[in-house]
Amino acid sequence: MAAAAAAGAGPEMVRGQVFDVGPRYTNLSYIGEGAYGMVCSAYDNVNKVRVAIKKISPFEHQTYCQRTLREIKILLRFRHENIIGINDIIRAPTIEQMKDVYIVQDLMETDLYKLLKTQHLSNDHICYFLYQILRGLKYIHSANVLHRDLKPSNLLLNTTCDLKICDFGLARVADPDHDHTGFLTEYVATRWYRAPEIMLNSKGYTKSIDIWSVGCILAEMLSNRPIFPGKHYLDQLNHILGILGSPSQEDLNCIINLKARNYLLSLPHKNKVPWNRLFPNADSKALDLLDKMLTFNPHKRIEVEQALAHPYLEQYYDPSDEPIAEAPFKFDMELDDLPKEKLKELIFEETARFQPGYRS
């Protein structure tokens, strides 16, 4: 834990890192770190609560700039109880001085990944967590956004079992017609939660990839272990087919990539493993919904509104309290091709509203 900075004593240090967030945020305490930044909790002297502050230093890398800009653009436009918001952003007053960006968010005690390492969940908890994931996802999908990296560590939890989806750095506007060349190379989302079509096709992607990830998360809540822990690309596919069985001819016809289709045709026939054999203690309604989410063919996979209306979630289902976005989200430009200098300018502009004396 960093010592509390005395008023006016300059930035606090946390594990050798400068955290320049005073005077409003003090009493910093280390939480963890990701690929390009550290997260601390801090005391907000204005709202009198502890908050989470993520320090991001992305400006050396085009990919990190892209992810940072995506996350900020999306989260500043989203407003939903099951999606983490941005409360404040701290950065230098000029673009030349801006080396880091500090993002202030609600402090959540833990995440689903940490929880599943230590606790076996009751059916009631599984049901409530799944409902909140789908409630947040309904809003995301209504904005025409794909999260693309749903996994237990991106689901934040607090002691009252509130759940918030975080990390929109890989999110995209849904565009089933656009052929994202190089899709697989830039697709760094965790393999275990990846839909089979991501490994088999490169053309376009749809909201059904997020539903697949939610199915993987439900299976993990039922058993405290990942359902498809593939060691590499082909191993991942083999794990999936080992449980779902061989795809039907109709399902194979959806695979545009001939090499991928021929690979699947070359494999020995596998039978589907019954879900109640894998999860003998699970609620039968939970397994019915799991089956509809972990469907090989993305066109037959359940959609988020149908999933919310499934009998497993009937005690929570309330369409009048499951809000959607006001308007579909649009990125003005494809960020993939922009140089990091341009992305830095866009991050600077996007964060201006939090600067003292800002006038829109």
Rank of each mutant, 00 (worst) to 15 (best):
A5K: 03
G10W: 14
V21G: 10
Y25H: 07
Y25V: 02
L28I: 00
Y30I: 06
I31G: 01
E33W: 05
M38R: 14
V39M: 11
A42S: 14
Y43K: 11
D44S: 05
V46C: 02
V46P: 11
V46Q: 12
K48L: 13
R50Q: 10
V51N: 10
I56Q: 15
S57M: 15
F59G: 13
E60I: 08
H61N: 14
T63A: 12
C65F: 14
C65R: 14
I72R: 02
L75C: 09
R77T: 03
R79T: 06
I86D: 11
I89N: 13
A92E: 02
T94N: 14
I95P: 11
E96P: 03
E96I: 02
M98G: 09
K99S: 05
Y102N: 14
Y102H: 04
V104W: 04
Y113C: 00
L115D: 03
L115R: 00
Q119M: 03
H120Q: 14
H125T: 02
C127Y: 12
L134F: 03
L134E: 07
L134R: 07
I140W: 06
A143C: 10
V145N: 05
L146W: 07
L146D: 06
H147F: 10
C161M: 05
C161A: 07
D162T: 06
K164P: 00
G169H: 07
G169V: 14
G169E: 06
A171M: 04
A171S: 14
V173Y: 01
A174N: 02
A174F: 03
P176F: 09
P176Q: 13
T185Y: 05
V188R: 13
T190L: 09
R194Q: 08
A195Q: 09
E197S: 10
I198C: 05
M199K: 14
N201R: 07
S202D: 10
Y205A: 03
W212M: 05
V214K: 07
E220M: 04
E220R: 07
L222F: 10
G230Q: 02
D235Y: 14
L237E: 08
L241M: 14
L244H: 00
Q249N: 05
Q249E: 01
Q249P: 06
N253R: 09
C254N: 04
R261Y: 03
L265I: 06
P274D: 08
N276L: 04
D288V: 13
D291F: 06
L294I: 02
T295M: 02
H299K: 06
E305H: 00
A307T: 13
A307G: 08
P311E: 05
P311S: 12
Y317K: 07
S320L: 07
E322G: 00
E322P: 00
A325G: 04
P328D: 07
E334C: 02
L335H: 13
L338N: 05
L338A: 06
E345N: 09
L346N: 12
E349R: 12
A352C: 07
A352G: 03
R353F: 07
F354K: 11
